[in-house]
Design a protein around this nucleic acid. Structure first.
Lengths: 342, 342
DNA sequence: TTGTAAGCGTTATCAT
DNA sequence: ATGATAACGCTTACAA
């Protein structure tokens, strides 16, 4: 397959083999210059015979770009992030661009580690799904000069392209739905305070409560962290009170926490939705498959990833330009986990 | 932050700034040669001031390795693969090695595309989770000379390091459990025929059936494809028959198909496990959260990813050597989806 | 149309 | 201990 022993063939080997110069080979392979038909054929044949593949490092060094982008996600085990990642990879593949996967476990430490790493790697761009909301020097630096697109989570104080969905409207709608169903005492389990999505979803919830003319006191908020156990803990705090003060509906800032709440209910003999109605946010595939299918708000996860990649690649690879993207629409998913109280 | 306008600082800039030669800078930064303490300090200061970060393309070109590995997965939306991916990324991070994510949607076409791509990229190695079992030229070529580790799915006819679990024993155990529970008419929904895991799990099932002294006829097999809809379809075929011939237990070659079977049951008024017992394979996190928690076989997904990365990096980066890895143990997870018949 | 040669930014060899 | 300098393999003026 190769004809040179030991090392992989280089463009020089191909040139020699085809009896042409290296530039001709390069021209032929990249369509970057005129090449006589017969020489082109000889080049292609030589490439075939030698099993030649250009060295990307050399190419990147010369071209000053690496044809790959970074993808920073908090945790692939959260289906929402997995869906976004699939969207990104699919779009990147269309442009023969490679995706470097960085999973941070939602820790600031690892987010910073990767921000630095990606800077060193001189990637063409980065798609950033923050799990912490922290915006320390390293991240600002990452964004500086480099092409970065934030997805899902928006970092304040940095002016960077962003792809997200209508968190606020989604939250308002699902809350309004619950209130219209007749619930008097509702509660909200929010995400981590520093995050834009947390803030937006909470705001939507409060708007709905206000629009329904309820006292804010009748709509308490417990702080969670978007993970399942925090939903469980929140349920404990909310439900271990005298029945008269117990909320009849618990709205959660994401599906994972809603599942945590459901687990608590199951463990403590509370039926959903008979005793407690529950809602989530994201509509992960799992949501519809739960013991009690979860009423939630769908974010177009795959599309978000895809659009982010389009946006980035438009900057980077001169791909077709894309609208700077407003907030993508969310869709209310009505399922069995919400019913009138009592 | 940078002092040269427009372009990013190079090692030359650092050298000039620190008043030393480029080789000294290189020595200082890589601990690859002797450097006087004061000069080292000056170099570090210059690096800091200029915000210098070495150009990876140049470094890779020179070093002849890129410090990154490829990860080919069928689909991150399958939690099992997401878990493996997390394991890989975590281990890679420990060695400052970057992971290039390739998601193939379990199509041979995309598997081949990525196999070629990774070859061109001259990655240091590839971790390969096949979703098709195809082993055409491109893949063999990928494996040739390159460091490749297969995970979960083993490709026959190629001698390559492999990390997997005891599929056969796991399947045998769960099947034995179901049979011991008293089921007379059982059925199996297998994975795609070409895959090693399919074949192993089917073999385990058959062993258990034989060990229980049952006629093979009393234990039919329906072919699925490891995806949810194929489980649904299989259930339809198995359950739309006269009650007397209907299996009382359906064993599935993975969790996703088991979920599909459950959906069918839900849609057709069949209670699990009262009318039908169901089992899966993988133990994805979702399995325990289903309306009826699923009896299944746990594969140590994260650990598999981690070990694969260790194995690969030992080859590649001279990391600590690792045992060539036998099959990792599986663990039977007994849950509510199995009960005695009737 | 084709070839020669000058970089791209590192690393590492070899003098000093 | 330090510094020139020659690769690494490719792209792309520029020359022929």
């Amino acid at each position: 397959m190769t004809d040179v022993a030991g090392r992989r063939p280089t463009i020089k080997d191909v040139a020699r083999h085809a009896g042409v110069s290296v530039s001709t080979v390069s021209y032929a392979l990249n369509d970057s210059g005129p090449v006589a038909p017969d020489k082109r054929a000889r080049v292609l044949a030589a490439v075939q015979q030698l099993g030649y593949a250009p060295n990307q490092s050399a190419r990147s060094l010369k071209r000053r770009r690496v044809s790959s982008i970074g993808l920073i996600v908090p945790d692939l085990r959260n289906e929402f992030f997995a869906l976004v990642a699939e969207g990104v990879v699919e779009e990147a593949q269309r442009h023969d661009v490679t995706v470097v996967l960085c999973s941070t476990d939602a820790t600031a430490e690892r987010e910073v580690y990767y921000a630095k790493l990606l800077r060193t790697q001189r990637l063409d761009g980065v798609i950033y799904l923050s799990g912490t909301g922290v915006s320390p020097g390293a991240l600002a630096e990452l964004a500086a000069g480099r092409s970065v697109v934030f997805v899902d989570e928006r970092l304040l104080g940095i002016d960077v392209p962003f792809v997200g969905s209508e968190n606020r409207r989604g939250a308002r709608e699902v809350a309004a739905h619950v209130l219209e169903t007749g619930h008097e005492r509702v509660a909200f389990v929010s995400g981590p305070p520093a995050l834009w999505t947390s803030e937006q979803r909470l705001a939507g919830y409060r708007e709905a409560v206000a629009a329904a003319g309820r006292e804010p006191d009748a709509a308490p908020v417990v702080v969670g962290d978007y993970r399942r156990p925090s939903g469980y803990a929140a349920a404990q705090r909310l439900l271990e009170v005298p029945a008269a003060r117990r909320p009849t509906a618990i709205l959660c800032a994401n599906d994972l926490m809603a599942i945590g709440v459901m687990e608590y209910c199951r463990d403590h003999g509370l039926e959903v939705p008979r005793h407690v109605s529950i809602t989530g946010f994201d509509d992960v595939p799992l949501a519809a498959l739960l013991s009690v299918p979860l009423t939630t708000v769908r974010q177009p996860a795959g599309e978000m990833g895809q659009r982010a990649a389009q946006l980035l690649l438009a900057h980077v690879a001169g791909a077709a330009a894309v609208e700077p993207a407003d907030l993508l629409p969310t869709v209310l998913q009505l399922r069995a986990s919400v019913a009138p109280p009592r």
